Simulated scan of single mutants.
Amino acid sequence: MDDRRNRLSDPDYAAFAWGRYRRVMRWMLLFAAAAIVVALLYLKLSGAPLTLHLMIATAAGVGGTVLLGTALMGLVFLSSGSGHDADAATHEEEP
């Protein structure tokens, strides 16, 4: 068995990998907050009336999009780096 396969089964590597994933998500939470502020500033400067509903919808839409994209891409890199993609690509029939 390849050394890279099933690394998330190793508790030490799993803790490292998930810690890295959470660290990336924390940084991207800050980036999402900054993107929300920039979007709201853009709307304010464009002359649009900033109602409470518009601000909530903008914050949810921009923040949700940034965080969802980050979460999915982070999971792709976690899966690839842990060897799970290689396991899925090599199908071995059981006897």
Score class of each variant (00 low, 15 high):
Pro95Gln: 09
Ser80Pro: 00
Arg22Gly: 08
Ala39Ile: 04
His91Arg: 11
Arg4Met: 09
Thr51Gly: 13
Ala34Gln: 03
Met73Val: 13
His84Asn: 11
Phe16Gln: 13
Leu40Ser: 05
Gly64Asp: 00
Leu68His: 06
Arg5Asn: 04
Leu54Glu: 09
Tyr42Leu: 11
Ser46Lys: 12
Val24Glu: 14
Ala39Asp: 12
Gly83Arg: 07
Tyr42Asn: 09
Tyr13Glu: 07
Ala86Asn: 11
Gly19Gln: 12
Ile36Phe: 11
Leu52Phe: 11
Leu30Ile: 14
His53Asp: 15
Trp27Ala: 12
Leu30Phe: 15
Met25Ile: 04
Leu78Trp: 04
Ala35Val: 01
Gly63Arg: 02
Leu54Thr: 14
Phe31Pro: 02
Arg22Gln: 11
Val37Cys: 10
Gly69Asp: 08
Ala34Val: 08
Tyr42His: 10
Ala17Ile: 01
Leu50Trp: 03
Glu92Pro: 09
Ala39Tyr: 11
Ala89Lys: 15
Gly63Cys: 03
Pro49Phe: 10
Leu78Arg: 01
Trp18Val: 02
Ile56Thr: 13
Thr90Trp: 13
Ala71Leu: 14
Ser9Phe: 10
Gly61Lys: 01
Leu40Met: 10
Ala34Arg: 01
Gly83Phe: 05
Asp12Ile: 02
Leu45Asn: 15
Thr70Asp: 14
Asp3Phe: 12
Ala48Glu: 15
Asn6Ser: 07
Met25Asn: 09
Ala89Phe: 15
Phe31Leu: 12
Leu68Gly: 01
Met55Asn: 05
Ala33Leu: 15
Val24Gly: 06
Lys44Ile: 00
Leu8Tyr: 00
Val76Gly: 01
Met1Ser: 08
Ala17Thr: 05
Ser46Gly: 14
Arg7Ala: 08
Met1Leu: 07
Arg23Pro: 00
Arg7Lys: 13
Leu52Met: 09
Gly81Lys: 05
Gly47His: 10
Gly64Leu: 01
Phe77Pro: 00
Leu52Gln: 12
Ala35Leu: 07
Thr58Phe: 07
Leu29Phe: 15
Arg26Tyr: 08
Gly47Cys: 06
Arg23Ile: 02
Thr90Gln: 15
Ser46Tyr: 03
Met73Ile: 12
Leu45Pro: 10
Ala59Arg: 04
Gly19Ala: 06
Thr70Ile: 04
Met1Gly: 10
Ala14Pro: 02
Tyr13Ser: 02
Leu75Ala: 05
Asp10Cys: 02
Leu43Gln: 15
Asp3Ile: 08
Glu93Lys: 09
Leu41Arg: 04
Arg5His: 06
Leu67Trp: 07
Trp27Arg: 14
His53Trp: 07
Phe16Val: 03
Ser79Ile: 02
Asp3Met: 06
Tyr13Val: 02
Arg22Ala: 14
Leu72Asp: 02
Leu72Pro: 01
His84Phe: 10
Asp10Arg: 06
Asp2Thr: 02
Gly64Tyr: 03
Ser46Thr: 11
Ala86Met: 11
Leu75Gln: 10
Asn6Leu: 05
Val62Asn: 04
Arg26Ile: 08
Ile56His: 14
His53Val: 06
Arg22Cys: 08
Ala57Glu: 13
